[in-house]
Design a protein around this nucleic acid. Structure first.
Lengths: 337, 337
DNA sequence: CTGAAAGCGCTAACAC
DNA sequence: GTGTTAGCGCTTTCAG
């Protein structure tokens, strides 16, 4: 029924080794044999079994990707880039979508192990100790993308989140704002949570502004988190004149809240996001934000993983450049009142 | 190095068959053997090789998903749902992201064949004849999700696009609009392109309104397509008072164009989208749209595929209910001039 | 209820 | 250049 390598060999009048050689593009095959094999393959519509190949070669041509949320544009962009790179080299990708369900993580890791994946890109950092232990002594190479994990020295590809948040806050400060609020990300996240908050605080401190904890709200990267936290912020006696959010989605939520409550943006309040997802330039006013080059990070992540798979030397820490995207959600402010 | 089934068998003092039986949860294993095997597995941290399993059992526990664009929220939602269902049954998913690169499609199909995937969910319909032929006589079950393909009788899971577009247009008509424009999708797409345009036309016709071709523009589901087509529409002598777009992304693009040009929405022009992606309720004004239940469609798609894999009888055509989501982008219009 | 043994379809070392 | 052969790690009859 299924046509296999023997069938091709028979039809082409050669041995299975020869067939294997041409299938895998090895040299040392005469032109004549090669042509006959190729003809046989075409006529029989032969397609090698990846299962058998994996078993024999101990390689799966599979890359696992562990991602917190597929519907998040930022991750979708990264995965798109990874998939693109991978498919050029005939690697396939297995998507493991955690969806904030930490129980799934270990299950996924085990599954990936069973599949003999050649490598894994991890974009999720709220991993528990069990998973951490698993990662420490797992058989396949792992690369961290957009995350960093304490006491786990794995290569990671990141922008400098602290500096990026510093730059964003500083931009608001340069515009003349003095009461700048922050809607942070999940503070269990080192990268997107803690680091960005740190950058915000450093900018304020360096500008000689005292940090007002009532201006700092924690969100979980969702639209609603931005919206609801903004509501609270707006009820403050001494309202902020600018808000920096740790994600575009939250920034847009916050911005919409302000507009729904009758404020003008950016006339009354300025907003700054983080990520630069498509939506940022689609909303009105267009959102100023920090550009985190998702596609580039994806590409570099895959290449780094590839290097690791090939036992090449790699840097433990790769920093990708971020940049500020200035659009229409921030306004200069004059200090007279 | 790698611990395999023999090691477990030895440690547990049983044969490999017994180990295999408990790993696969078969009955006919004594409690005692079972416990000993489980203990050995735990201590050895044994994890079966999927490659070997596939080879021996002729099943891969792999589902292929062919998707046009991962960064499109609608597809991301569908995949999330599929992945969720699949992972419950220990299936993994392989993502094949076409990105409008039709050459990749056949390559992917071949790859999936090599992997012995147990089934494929196809969400892309601009397939060429070569791929079509491949699909006709491929070895694994295929299910079409959100698409329909001519002369290829494969089970498909869809909303009734024509009726949905009819309902959307009709809603605008009921609001009193008489000049309703449409920004259609890619007219090479039967489902999202042609069917939705048909529904629009039928609504107009049934309302006794002559179809004005200058009010119909073709887009390709992108933001810019909405934006640019709207520009053209706005330059018409006799401007539309309402616009129906075949996707939310295009509707938002069109809406933004109108606002950028100084029009008020919905006061001057009403907008209606299609899909009901998150962004629709995030933009201001909130976009009225057709809800296409992505998660449900994803779930049903997977279950249908599962049934097909198990040779169960299945309907060739499964229709999922759509609904209208009325928000703030459409306004009633009085007919006085 | 359990074990022996024959593959699953391919790769890769080795011999020619 | 090419063929032979021994696995890769598991499932699955078939005996017992």
């Amino acid at each position: 029924m299924k046509v296999k390598i023997d069938d091709v060999a028979k039809k082409a009048g050669v041995s299975i080794s020869t067939v294997s050689r041409v299938v895998n593009g090895y040299e040392h095959v005469s032109k004549k044999s090669k042509e006959r094999v190729e003809k046989a393959i075409r006529e029989l519509e032969y397609s090698p079994s990846q299962a058998a190949r994996s078993l024999a070669s101990q390689k799966s041509k599979l890359i696992g990707i562990i991602v917190p949320d597929l519907t998040n544009q930022y991750y979708a962009n990264m995965i798109t880039a990874i998939e693109e790179e991978a498919s050029k080299l005939d690697y396939s990708i297995i998507i493991c979508n955690i969806q904030e369900n930490m129980k799934k993580e270990l299950k996924y890791m085990k599954m990936l192990k069973e599949m003999w994946v050649d490598g894994v890109i991890l974009m999720h950092e709220k991993i528990n100790d069990e998973t951490k232990k698993f990662l420490m002594d797992c058989s396949f190479p792992v690369v961290l993308s957009s995350v960093k994990i304490d006491d786990l020295k794995l290569p990671n590809i990141n922008i400098n989140d602290e500096q990026a948040a510093f730059d964003a806050t500083n931009y608001l400060l340069e515009l003349g704002h003095r009461r700048v609020a922050m809607i942070s990300g999940d503070l269990r996240d080192i990268t997107a949570g803690i680091s960005r908050l740190k950058g915000y605080k450093r900018a304020l401190t360096e500008a000689g502004i005292k940090i007002d904890e009532s201006l700092i709200k924690e969100g979980y990267f969702k639209f609603e988190d931005g919206y609801n936290n903004m509501k609270t912020l707006l009820m403050l006696k001494d309202r902020p004149t600018a808000v920096f959010a740790a994600s575009d989605v939250m920034a847009i939520g916050a911005m919409n809240c302000a507009m729904d409550m009758g404020f003008e943006v950016p006339e009354d309040i300025s907003f700054m996001g983080f990520d630069n997802i498509d939506m940022a330039s689609v909303v009105r006013p267009r959102l100023s934000t920090v550009n985190q080059p998702a596609k580039l990070i994806g590409q570099v992540s895959f290449r780094t993983l590839l290097n690791k798979m090939n036992d090449k030397m790699i840097d433990e820490e790769i920093v990708i450049e971020h940049s500020l995207v200035k659009r229409n959600s921030c306004k200069e402010v004059n200090f007279e009142g």
